[in-house]
Amino acid sequence: MIIQTIMFYAFSAVAVASGVMVVSARNPVHSVLFLILAFFNAAGLFVLMGAEFLAMILVIVYVGAVAVLFLFVVMMLDVDFARLRSGFLRYLPIGALIGFILLAELILIFGSWELAPSVATAKAAPMLVGGISLTNTRALGDLIYTRYIFAFQTAGVILLVAMIGAIVLTLRHRVGTRRQSIAAQLARTRAQSVEVVKVRVGEPVDGV
């Protein structure tokens, strides 16, 4: 129990610290790397709560795909972050003030949080169906395809929209681009593509 508590605070502290660094790091590549660190710590927190599936998803999807994509984009684009950040200091005092007020208020709210009596036992307890404990993944799957089928399908439509959007906004048919036409390739016969030419020494070849 004590180890879990220590781990919880360690993960949390590192996560918050790397969050701060994401915003404040001078080098954008460092920012992205700190972001990845924050993801890892969040995954650790999930594991502590017994949500190992979510933890793995976080690592695989966010770290493995999203953050790496970020990294590529940041490295490939020559964005002058220093210039973008030039207004930062000017707005820092008032920004910090607003942020601080908000933080204080939210802490105040969490002060009033009462845990429901049943939560402590429900936390991290394996689900039981007919005496057999259900894995995290299986339990989620059961829910997603039944109780949350509507939400799941809607999320699918959202992804479709994202796909259409990406294509609409970026795909361009440039004139003169060479493309592979598989049908044309397969339809080619020997007669169309190969010609036997007799070459005489010292004379030019016809049609070349």
Binding site: G87, Y91, G95, I98, I101, L102, E105, L108, I109
Partner: peptide, 19 residues
């Protein structure tokens, strides 16, 4: 970011009002 900032000020104002 000006727009976002105005929004945040609005958030803070409303939250403060209720607290």
């Amino acid at each position: 970011y000006h727009y976002a900032f105005v929004m945040l000020i609005g958030v803070v104002a409303l939250v403060t009002w209720y607290l």
